[in-house]
Structures are given as structure tokens and as C-alpha cells.
């Protein structure tokens, strides 16, 4: 192992910085309604919806777990349907209505699905959870009383490495029950 370098090597008051060049990329304006609020932003066409939500709007609830749209951590609701926001360009969403995990609780009250994930221990590290909850919403919107098999089939597009899915399945069932009650 070579000797560790000293902090002084870096020049503590060194102001040697690279010049900051101008960044110019073609942008277009989009208007989007997210969780009930309307936003207007100039975006590069290649900006992915997930990066738009996280970096531009500041909604960091949806997560990025892969780049092949196979993990589902980035799932949000776009025009009433669950989609993987890592496989949609923000520019495609001009004029659309988007719901993210941050918009699920209303008036200071958790959504029944959130409540169910909490009660049933449907999460551990929590990274997949926003996507799981948004997909669960889609499952229950279409089928208010799903069987275990239908739940598992419905969650096919969402990976979780912590829970083994069992408590998630319980949470979806509990949410269905709570919604029916």
C-alpha cells in the first residue's frame, strides 16, 4: 500500500476549478398536473419521466432500481394507469395527470394501501415500496377483491429483495378488505 496522501496535496484553499461551460440542449415546455398541482417546465426530449419527477419537480418517492424497466420501483400513475416512469419520456406526458406515492395520502391521512403495508409489515428497506403501493392501487382499481394468485400475478413487474413478497401479498389483501369495509 502506498503512503496515504495528505489533505494538503489537494490545496486546501486551492481555487483551481474548471470553467463552467454553458449547457445548451434543445428543450420544450411541458405542462403536467402532478398530485393535483400543475407544473410547467422546459425539458430536454430525452429527460425520462422518473428523472423529471425526482430532479426537476423534487418528488423523490419514486425510485430507480434498474435501467431495463424490470424492477418497478419507479411506478407512478399516468393518466389513471400504473406505468414505469423510467420507460417514459417526460415530454410524452405534456398535458397529463400524474399521481406519485407522495400524492397517495390525502388530508393528513394515509391511503388505505399505505396503512395496509404498514400494518402487515409489507416492507423492509422500503426502496421498492412506493412502486409496490402504486402497482397495488392499479391491481385494486381493476379488481377490488383479488385472489392470492391474482395479486402475485399483478405484482409481476415489481421486484422486492427483502420481504419474499408474503407480507406484501398480505398487505394487498388487507387493503382490499379495508376498501370493501
Amino acid at each position: 500500500m502506498p503512503l496515504p496522501t495528505s489533505a494538503l496535496d489537494f490545496g486546501i484553499f486551492n481555487d483551481r476549478r474548471y470553467p463552467l461551460p454553458e449547457v445548451s440542449a434543445m428543450t420544450e415546455t411541458i405542462n403536467v398536473n402532478i398530485n393535483g398541482t400543475t407544473y410547467s417546465h422546459d425539458v430536454e426530449p430525452r429527460l425520462l419521466l422518473i428523472h423529471y419527477l425526482r430532479e426537476v419537480v423534487g418528488l423523490t418517492g419514486p425510485h430507480i432500481g434498474c435501467e431495463t424497466s424490470l424492477c418497478g420501483a419507479c411506478t407512478v400513475e399516468l393518466s389513471g394507469k400504473a406505468v414505469k416512469s423510467c420507460a417514459v419520456f417526460a415530454i410524452q406526458c405534456d398535458g397529463a395527470k400524474i399521481l406519485t406515492i407522495e400524492g397517495m395520502a390525502a388530508n393528513g391521512k394515509l391511503h388505505k394501501i399505505q396503512e395496509a403495508f404498514w400494518n402487515e409489515h409489507g416492507l423492509q428497506c422500503g426502496f421498492c415500496t412506493p412502486g409496490m403501493i402504486m402497482t397495488t392501487k392499479q391491481i385494486l382499481d381493476r379488481n377490488p377483491n383479488p385472489s392470492d394468485q391474482e395479486i402475485r400475478h399483478g405484482l409481476e413487474g415489481n421486484l422486492c429483495r427483502c420481504t419474499g413478497y408474503q407480507h406484501i401479498v398480505n398487505a394487498v389483501k388487507a387493503a382490499a378488505k379495508a376498501a370493501g369495509a
Binding site: R54, M104, W118, G126
Partner: peptide
């Protein structure tokens, strides 16, 4: 039920990529 869950189920927890 876990004390850590409220921030996780509301999407308000701070992972490294959420730091700006």
C-alpha cells in the same frame, strides 16, 4: 408495526440519490 415505516410508505425517506 414498525416505527420506520411512515417515511417509507409516503415516499419521503431520503436515500442517497435523494440528496441534492
Amino acid at each position: 408495526r414498525r416505527r420506520e415505516d411512515p417515511r417509507l410508505i409516503t415516499g419521503t425517506a431520503t436515500y442517497v440519490d435523494d440528496i441534492k
